[in-house]
Simulated scan of single mutants.
Amino acid sequence: MARELPPARDAARRKRDVLERLAGDEDAWVATADAAGEPCLVPLSFVWHGGALVMTTRAANPTAVNAAASGRAVVSLGHTRDVVLIDARVEVVADGALGEAEGEAFVAKLAWDTRGRPGWVFLRFHPRAIRAWREVNELPGRQLMANGVWLVQGA
């Protein structure tokens, strides 16, 4: 027996839902790869600030090392029936170089502060492409951002 799918959301609703997830979710899956193409997938906590996802990890962790080398990552929010995939350009932000407002937003949301801790860095993920869908009926039109520009105006 086939399961009945809820109606597909229009692009404006999907964008609003993505922005709500970015504001409200605390954790994401982050995928990077090393120079040999070996993947690394880890969960990291984040804050959405100034149009970028801000996360922290140890500078020696593969995620930070890979991000520094390639400047690229894929970030995933949600679960398999409510997917947000973000292709991002990544900046590694050394301790002391994170803006005060970003740091305070991170601490306010996550009650965790690595500023001033030796060996830690922040990662700033700038979305280049965003895709979002819930079910197969939402696969058409799942591309909401391309080349860093929202394809859907308003929200």
Results as ranks from 00 to 15, higher is better:
V54K: 05
L85G: 00
H49A: 01
A31I: 07
A73M: 08
A33P: 03
A36I: 02
A101G: 04
R14L: 15
E100V: 07
A69P: 09
E102G: 02
G96E: 01
N66E: 06
A97L: 10
A35E: 13
L44V: 13
R89C: 08
E91D: 14
E20T: 12
D95W: 08
V30A: 14
R21S: 06
A88N: 07
R58G: 15
V93I: 13
D10W: 05
S76C: 10
L53R: 09
R16V: 08
A35P: 06
R14I: 06
V65S: 01
R89G: 11
E26I: 00
V84I: 01
V42K: 11
C40N: 12
A23H: 11
T80K: 08
N66R: 02
A35H: 02
G99W: 05
L44C: 07
A101Y: 07
I86E: 05
V54T: 11
A11L: 06
D34A: 04
A94Q: 12
V84L: 00
N61S: 15
T63H: 15
V54Y: 14
V65L: 11
D34V: 06
V65M: 03
P43W: 10
L77P: 10
V30W: 04
R81C: 10
A31D: 14
M55E: 05
D27G: 06
P39D: 15
N61I: 09
D17Y: 08
A36D: 07
A52P: 00
V54D: 06
R21I: 04
H49Y: 04
V92M: 10
V84N: 00
G103V: 02
V83I: 14
A88W: 07
D87L: 04
H79C: 03
V84A: 00
R14W: 09
A35S: 03
T56P: 09
T63C: 07
G96Q: 13
R21F: 03
R58Y: 11
G71K: 08
D82H: 01
V18A: 02
N61G: 11
D27M: 13
R13D: 15
T32G: 04
V30P: 12
T56E: 08
T80C: 01
M55G: 07
V30I: 15
P39W: 02
G71I: 13
F46M: 05
A11N: 02
V90T: 12
G103N: 01
V83E: 01
W48K: 02
G99L: 07
G50Q: 07
A28I: 03
G37E: 00
M55S: 14
V84E: 01
R21V: 04
E100S: 10
A97V: 10
R81I: 03
A31C: 11
R14H: 15
V75L: 15
A64W: 08
G24M: 14
D34G: 05
G96V: 15
R72D: 01
S70F: 03
E91H: 14
K15W: 14
D34I: 07
